[in-house]
Design a protein around this nucleic acid. Sequence first.
DNA 1: TATTGTTATACTCTATAACTATA
DNA 2: TATAGTTATAGAGTATAACAATA
Lengths: 170, 170
Amino acid sequence: MLNDLELAAGDVQGGGKMELRLWLRLLSTTKLISQELRRRLRIEFNVTLPQFDVLAQLHREPDGLRLGDLSQRTMVTNGNITGLVERLETDGLLVRERLREDRRVTVARLTEHGRSEFERMAHAHESWLKELMRDMDPEVLTSLFSHVSEIKHAALTRFAATDELDGALD
Amino acid sequence: MLNDLELAAGDVQGGGKMELRLWLRLLSTTKLISQELRRRLRIEFNVTLPQFDVLAQLHREPDGLRLGDLSQRTMVTNGNITGLVERLETDGLLVRERLREDRRVTVARLTEHGRSEFERMAHAHESWLKELMRDMDPEVLTSLFSHVSEIKHAALTRFAATDELDGALD
DNA sequence: TATTGTTATACTCTATAACTATA
DNA sequence: TATAGTTATAGAGTATAACAATA
């Protein structure tokens, strides 16, 4: 299952550019998979990947999330979360409500329809990924998860502004 | 360096959803890093990530590439590669030329300016990534590369149409 | 004054299909 | 007829800044 061709071709160099090569491989892999998942989500459920992400975040929080928190967790700017959420509200998947205690704050939460729709999406999504990774050793998946988490952690501490460090748990 | 908090919090389940969790982690990680790299590329070099990708592909091919091949390698549709390449031509980073033997074919290749600009970009890009991954064990990077390649290979064989399988070597 | 969210704007990317010219 | 590339179009994402309402 290992692509010996690529290895033999000198893809793995002990030398200097492993970081770059790994990054490019990560990027092309996620792009490839994202495109297919996006296509399937659109065809089967008529949602985009960022919309799916918003729904996933809200699904974890039965009481809903402030738009600012949603913005942090999805890594979508405040200005753009508005339109994203608006489209989902139009489709009846979530509702927005202003807080009484602080009328500047808007909380978004899933409707019943949104919740059940998301669960259908998540189920399909999960089975697509299981199919994709069916030949991977479970140990390898766990190890991958932890190392990718290391990289993410480094990115959070070295790339992101320190005050944005909270939300992104994924 | 391992994020014990996340592990302790039950992020790694022996059970059933490791594939999904790994995917979400991959996705949020590449998104986080992409956003920062995109920001830096725009500020320092005034290019987007897809444009950088096009330049990288052309940089490997001194004689240039047919737009169709470029389209495959970057995973950008034929229709959209046109505009992408046009912007780069306007900026003087590449030129398009029709083939004499077959006047349907257009070949894009870097100009001298494009080549030297890309080399500056690639150098900066590489140092950003080295900084990001400076604490990662080189063995781990190699192992990550090979396992991510496995996943990419699975995606290529299971997701993509069989006739599009050639180009995507990254 | 600071914060929350909205609006506005400009650009780019993505997906699809119809179209042109060449073969 | 088939192929390579372009054009057209619609919808979204992305980044920034200005703005209104509220605190």
